[in-house]
């Protein structure tokens, strides 16, 4: 089994629902984004259009971050292909951040709260599981997935632009969509075999 995600760029409206759902699910500290939406525009007035590109860890088949990690803190789960971090092993060298071609890793080196006066009780409770001075990233909401639920960004996308499934199963929706709609990955030239595919807008 290899979990993967398909993001339909035709359906994405750039609402940041995925980014907020991820923040709410994981309580990530300021400056740490497991899911992001990149917005840009192309063309000249009056033919201008918005481009949205939701990005997250690509959970590569051949992850360069795992190869570069000196402690084994970055690793890939054999049973489902999810690339994860064991924060108890991370030494904070950030070599994985340099190795990742998708720049979706963040170093949590600050006191995790948003307000200058300190963390609110809610923030403190949510931030408690996140150790500082280590690298953090998306793990496809592995706890949710193991409980039979989709990742938070998938569950909360109002336009159903994100589809989650098994890339190894040729009959799964993700495999079908990739095949039928010409799914593509970011930076295929790097040769890492990403598990996040995009459907053209």
């Amino acid at each position: 089994m290899r979990w993967g995600m398909v993001i339909d760029l035709k359906r994405c409206i750039g609402c940041y629902g995925c980014q907020l759902a991820c923040k709410a699910e994981h309580g990530t500290p300021p400056g740490v984004y497991y899911a992001r939406v990149l917005k840009s525009e192309e063309g000249q007035y009056p033919t201008v259009r918005n481009l949205f590109l939701p990005v997250l860890c690509n959970h590569c088949e051949d992850p360069p971050c795992v190869e570069a990690c000196p402690t084994g803190a970055s690793f890939k789960w054999e049973e489902d292909g999810i690339v994860d971090i064991d924060h108890d092993l991370c030494v904070g060298c950030r070599s994985c951040m340099m190795a990742c071609p998708y720049t979706n890793r963040y170093f949590n080196d600050q006191v995790p709260h948003y307000h200058p006066q300190g963390a609110t009780p809610y923030e403190a409770a949510r931030a408690a599981p996140h150790p500082s001075n280590v690298v953090m990233k998306c793990n496809f909401c592995r706890d949710r997935v193991r409980a039979g639920k989709p990742p938070a960004c998938v569950a909360n996308c109002p336009t159903v632009a994100r589809i989650f499934g098994d890339l190894d199963d040729p009959t799964s929706e993700v495999s079908r969509l990739i095949k039928e709609r010409g799914g593509f990955t970011l930076h295929p030239e790097v040769g890492t075999g990403p598990s996040v595919y995009y459907l053209p807008a």
Partner: peptide
Amino acid sequence: FLGRPERFWRMVRHVRTAWIS
């Protein structure tokens, strides 16, 4: 430089693939 210098000895673990190791 390390975020968690007290764990430096763990860097010996991935000599097979990691140049930092």
